[in-house]
Simulated scan of single mutants.
Amino acid sequence: MSAEAVEIFERHRARLLGLAYRMLGSAAEAEDIVQEAFLRWHHTEPGSVEVPSAWLAKVVTNLCLNRLDSARSRRERYVGTWLPEPVLTPDGALGPLETVEQRDTVSYAFLVLAERLTPSERAVFVLREAFGYSHREVAELVELSESNCRQLHRRAKKRLADAGLPRSVADRPDHRALVERFLVAAQNGDLAGLERMLAEDVSSVADGGGLPGVARRPLKGAVRVARYLAATVSRSVESVTASIQEVNGAPAVLGRLGTALVGVLVLEIVGERVTAVRIVANPDKLRFLGDQAARLSRSPEVSGS
């Protein structure tokens, strides 16, 4: 492969990774998809692709659709609750997050609810909302009729709205302040303080991939969630170092045991209340973010803290 062909692909890598990640909710699988796209790009005849960006987007989309077809059965066998892999977003690893749509479609809330969409609905919604493709262009990428794509887009929007997808809050200055107060209350075992920040019907879900000590069933209600978090966080406060960084476009809590990342806590906030708590402790799902954090710590000019 020529140096020019490699340069063209690298120019689109972050955008392709962002597309695959939004489709799959897994950074590790997204990297595999992008690598496969690179191999296919490598085997094209020089000059045979008129619009590389569209060609690569189509390849990645189709690879993701194939992966999603088999993902459901794998996740049904998953031990405990399956959650998406968290990703640090200050370093541009997932491409630009300059618009509300770009940030919303990488948000943890979206990735959780997107699991309810069919693969085709998810593809059409992501291509349209996150990447701004017209319905005609989306139809060409997914090889469906334009009218069918319009219908899929409407259906996806309705499903997400009915499921309670919150409006974007990533840019609210008080979001980080609430996360900071939440962390302090949890570390101090302050049940009353936690309950004041939790919505009455708040839910807490943890993904440990079968790891001992990680709750496998969701908890519901402010009292139960506050007790669980206070007991879990305050018990580990002497051994685990907590910090707040931008994860999936919003502030989240990272927990480290020494230099090892052992957990990520993502809060979903509506108004002045936490409506959902999602904890990722599966080591496999922390590897990508851990590598990102290590790179960021060596690059002080890129900071999410």
Rank of each mutant, 00 (worst) to 15 (best):
L254Q: 07
N148A: 15
M23F: 04
E301L: 12
D207P: 10
E98F: 01
Q187T: 08
R40S: 00
H12C: 00
S239F: 09
A250D: 09
W55K: 01
A199E: 12
G193M: 04
V247Y: 10
H153P: 00
L165E: 04
E36H: 07
L39V: 14
L183V: 07
E101I: 00
A206L: 10
G18S: 06
E115Q: 14
F125V: 05
A3Q: 11
S73K: 11
E246D: 07
V184A: 12
V280T: 15
V270P: 00
G209M: 05
P96G: 02
D171S: 06
N66W: 00
L267W: 06
T241F: 07
G47F: 03
A20I: 04
P119M: 11
R196E: 15
S2W: 06
R13W: 06
K158S: 09
A293C: 01
L160Q: 05
L111R: 15
Q35K: 11
A27S: 07
P46Y: 11
D284Y: 08
P119A: 11
L261A: 13
L267A: 13
A3V: 11
P283Y: 04
A222N: 10
P84Q: 00
E200Q: 09
A281D: 00
P96K: 02
V274W: 09
I244Q: 13
G25T: 02
Y108C: 00
T259Q: 08
E195A: 07
A123P: 03
R122A: 01
A161F: 05
A109D: 14
L127K: 02
S203T: 15
R72Q: 10
L24I: 00
R298M: 09
R159I: 15
R154H: 14
T89C: 01
